[in-house]
Design a protein around this nucleic acid. Structure first.
Lengths: 150, 150
DNA sequence: GCTTGACTTAAAGTGCGCTTGAACCGGTAC
DNA sequence: GTACCGGTTCAAGCGCACTTTAAGTCAAGC
């Protein structure tokens, strides 16, 4: 039985009640059970909110969160569009981990000498960027030539 | 010699020229060399921008970026305040990596069955949250008792 | 029955991180 | 000389993700 008031749940997550109402309004959280007009939450609603909050913490926009985590369908085979969005997010997270490692490395260096860190790490980031953009170009070229052959 | 125009640099980073002007205005980028009133950038300015952009990508606010990466002093021993901010950011990034792993795990599960992923992963995130908050409480309690003893 | 306090809604407001618009400047092409 | 292009400044505007405000509802306690 749902028995958690909105303010209790909000407090548990370090959010304002208004944020939960907003999430419900825009469909990030499903409309919850009401008693006398007041929202009451149960543990499954709380689990759902935990996921939404985590997604937000990781920089997912509200829209992405909506698409990835709304319950419009429940079960295995979801739409192609959703599946590819999921896959894209997985890759994005992979890249993010590399970037975080780079940044940690840099912060550590900066705690000794800022100038050196700026020069070396800035150059490192740039080189990574350039390498990736070269790779993308290569991929585009070979895709074009494949198109040409097809 | 600086010879890159603002629009070239912006393009290289996938930004608008207005973003670079804005960064300069709020002190995230230093005022750059000018010729006839126009900004010209060199490789070191580009490295600096690379760092700023990376910080933004990782969810650092503009203010944090300002504090962490502005050149108000250059060399090893920076203010205590800065040093602790740096340390805090390092820890934050550590946590972020764990969260990303959790989310990857969840996305993978979700690509098979959403419901299961929601229940299991939501519960997992929650448990992590609760564990951490218990630890914080413990720490607070032992700190208080230490205060009491002092 | 009245007060209190935590809730409700809808609409307007806020802060961040830029972007856009208006008016202007400087160098090159014709 | 004038048209154009890419820059300049300053102020206003915008989208996102909420928050605040105003006016009202509901249940409990006196």
């Amino acid at each position: 039985m749902p028995d958690l008031t909105i303010s209790r749940v909000a407090k548990q997550f370090g959010l304002r009640a208004s944020a939960l109402r907003y999430y419900e309004q825009i469909g990030v959280l499903p409309a919850t059970y009401r008693r006398g007009g007041q929202r009451l939450y149960d543990e499954s609603a709380v689990r759902r909110l935990a996921i939404v909050q985590r997604a937000r913490e990781l920089g997912f926009t509200i829209k992405e969160t909506q698409i990835l985590f709304s319950d419009f369908s429940c079960g295995p085979p979801i739409s192609e569009r959703w599946h590819s969005l999921c896959g894209a997010k997985l890759e994005e997270l992979e890249i993010r981990i590399d970037q975080i490692h780079e940044m940690q490395h840099m912060l550590q260096k900066m705690m000794q000498c800022r100038c050196a860190a700026f020069d070396q790490c800035g150059a490192g980031i740039l080189e990574g960027k350039r390498k990736r953009s070269r790779e993308r170009e290569q991929a585009a070229v070979s895709e074009n030539s494949a198109d040409g052959e097809a």
